[in-house]
Design a protein around this nucleic acid. Structure first.
Lengths: 139, 139
DNA sequence: AATCTTCTTGACCTTTACGTAAGCATAATT
DNA sequence: AATTATGCTTACGTAAAGGTCAAGAAGATT
């Protein structure tokens, strides 16, 4: 329900504001990620606050390397109001929990990679500081 | 220089141990990510400790959503011994620093996403706990 | 000697996530 | 009225990252 008068945003402006292309937005609609978009006079797509939030959420997930197919599942979150609440909720919590776990795992991976890189950097800079004679380096 | 007698690992075993396919390993060689692999009797590929470490590193990066093309640049790290040390090092440090930054950014993104998901989960479970009459939910 | 098993190199196939171009409609501007 | 900007759909194109199939070689096993 969009009671307050939403600002109508058209596809071009929206794309520009999110630094993506219009094609991307239409594509997300095409594959069902964004739902049918409201049209102005039956033609030009117009986006509301809710739509924009949803798109931002999608981009956030995508940026984290989650495929559009997987995002589609998670996107049920946004369709929940249209479905039966107590049927969907346990499943939703399950999805959320599993994604929290996945996010934690990814973060651990990143943390480990960061450690690797930093350690490597330290080894190199130490070498540079202590040793000017750089034939056959061992690090 | 592989002085100690390395265990020779063949492609099938290596693939199985890393839970990938032989095609993937050959593909990485094909696009230059793994360098020419040593052969047994000029035919079957054999892998040393170093090669395996390199492959593991690649998989680690890939798992974090870094493209093979980008990994290729970072992979210079492993070729460094074959090149001139002081020519390559400043560039390498630059690469490492930029990747540390990128990793930090990604981790921040994940952290933010995790917060979103957890908050959402809390809203739902609270709703479930406080409200059994679930028509037209607002969350 | 025959059969497995694992390896080899091509070569083409597939999916994902869009890019890009064609041809047309509408709205705003000159 | 003509141009420009933005929008629309349809449809073919593309890069990345492998999958899959073919046809054959080499080593191990029965």
């Amino acid at each position: 329900m969009s009671t307050e008068q939403d600002k109508l945003v058209q596809i071009g402006e929206l794309a520009k504001s999110l630094a993506i292309t219009t094609r991307t937005i239409r594509y997300y609609e095409e594959i069902g990620l964004m739902g049918k978009t409201e049209r102005i006079g039956g033609r030009a797509r117009s986006y509301h606050k809710d739509d924009i939030l949803r798109l931002k959420f999608i981009l956030k997930l995508k940026n984290l390397g989650i495929s559009l197919k997987e995002i589609e599942k998670l996107s049920d979150i946004f369709d929940i109001n249209k479905k039966n609440f107590d049927v969907i909720t346990p499943k939703l919590i399950e999805i959320l929990d599993s994604h929290i776990t996945r996010v934690d795992e990814k973060m651990a991976d990143f943390s480990s990679l960061r450690k690797d890189i930093v350690e490597y950097r330290v080894r190199i800079t130490n070498y540079l500081a202590n040793n000017s004679d750089n034939r056959n380096p061992e690090y």
